[in-house]
Simulated scan of single mutants.
Amino acid sequence: MNQPLPPAAALFATPAVKVTHRDDGATLVQNPIPLEPYARCVGEYLEYWAEHAPDRPFMLERSPAGLWVGVTYRQALDKVHRIGSWLLKLGLRPGQPVCVLSDNQVNHGVLMLAAMHVGIPYSGISPAYSLLSQDHAKLKNLVQRINPGVIYVGGAGRFKAALRAIDGLHGAQLVVADEDELPNAEALHFSDMLVEADMAAVHKAYAAITPDTVAKILFTSGSTGYPKGWSTRSACCVPVFRPSDRSGRFWPNSRRCCLIGCPGITRLGAIIISTLFWAMAARFILMVASRFPACSTPRSTTCAKWLPRCI
């Protein structure tokens, strides 16, 4: 049964936005809250909670039987190390991102964190380009532009047409969920990435990450043509995981976990439920990242109508 919602102040920092309207018609949006120390990359938070709250749930999703299944912080970090080792062994370069076509899933989230943990960019492509499009024009365009080194699809049966459409347009290693049938002889199952952990290689790659390392490649909605992409640095990803004050609000919080695929929000005092597509959540990051001087991503004046509600 749903519990009463706690006051908003218990979940979010107090809004603080300075809006300046210039004579030339531009609108400047600034956050007056001073910059506090922040992590080098998102992986620092995962490692922290894997040490301090190893057995607490991190990401959960509904199983076919209706049960909550997923990973704790310790299990997530172990998989991140193993997948990161596999990605490094594959020889991926920064210019060969890990691309995910499917919806929010625990495997999706773990793979995203693993790529970012070893300095390989991640890019999530809206499932609509695979499942709703008839000609897959936007999907084809994005795959050719991204030039991915790995493509992951969970629930590959629904993506058969999309995978056929991009066949021959990339040289990526295709990975599908363990319960999926392999679409071709070269494809792998998700568990094939979990065979071993080369901790020396992972630690070396992780140590080389800087705030300027490209973490994600994000795309606009494509409502005015093909989606437009931009690189998002590690410094820009950190704000959504780092509270804007020292109250502990926002993830990471050892009392909270991310539940995937929920129709609403319940038990907010203990749990945060995410219904955002991972890539969409990163677009939210880009809007709030303007509070961090270390983030040089160009600010758009269109953020003016969103920022007061987002922060």
Rank of each mutant, 00 (worst) to 15 (best):
D24H: 10
P121E: 13
I260V: 14
W86P: 00
D245E: 08
W86V: 00
P243N: 15
D180M: 06
L194P: 03
A26Y: 05
A187Q: 07
T213G: 06
L131M: 06
R309N: 12
I273K: 03
T20Q: 13
S63E: 09
G168A: 12
V110A: 06
Y226H: 11
G124W: 02
A115C: 05
Y38F: 05
A161W: 04
G168E: 11
C262F: 03
L101M: 12
G154F: 04
T210R: 10
L5K: 14
R233N: 00
S133V: 01
V106K: 02
A235R: 11
I217Y: 07
E36P: 02
Q96C: 02
F219I: 00
L101F: 15
R82I: 07
R267I: 00
A26E: 13
A128Q: 12
W251G: 03
A185R: 14
G225S: 08
C310L: 15
A10P: 01
V214E: 11
A200S: 10
L87W: 08
P121N: 10
Y48F: 12
G109K: 09
R56T: 13
S290P: 00
P54W: 13
E61A: 13
K204F: 01
S126R: 06
Q3S: 15
R249S: 03
G225E: 06
A76T: 12
N104P: 03
C303I: 04
I311E: 14
M1G: 15
G248V: 12
L188W: 14
S290Y: 04
P239K: 04
R309A: 09
L46Q: 10
S274L: 07
I271Y: 07
P183A: 13
H170A: 05
I151C: 05
D192E: 15
F241Y: 14
A26C: 03
M280N: 12
A128S: 14
R164V: 08
T302S: 08
T301Y: 07
D198L: 05
F284H: 14
Y152Q: 02
V42G: 04
I271E: 12
C237P: 01
V71H: 05
V238C: 02
P293E: 05
R145S: 11
A200F: 05
V29I: 15
T266H: 02
H21S: 04
M199S: 12
K138E: 13
V42H: 02
I273W: 05
S130I: 07
G157Q: 14
K89Y: 06
T220I: 04
D167L: 02
F250V: 11
A177C: 07
F277L: 15
C258K: 00
A289N: 13
T14F: 05
C257W: 09
T232W: 02
T266G: 01
H203P: 00
H108V: 05
R164N: 14
I217K: 05
M116C: 08
A289Y: 02
K228D: 09
V214Q: 06
G119P: 08
D178C: 10
P37R: 04
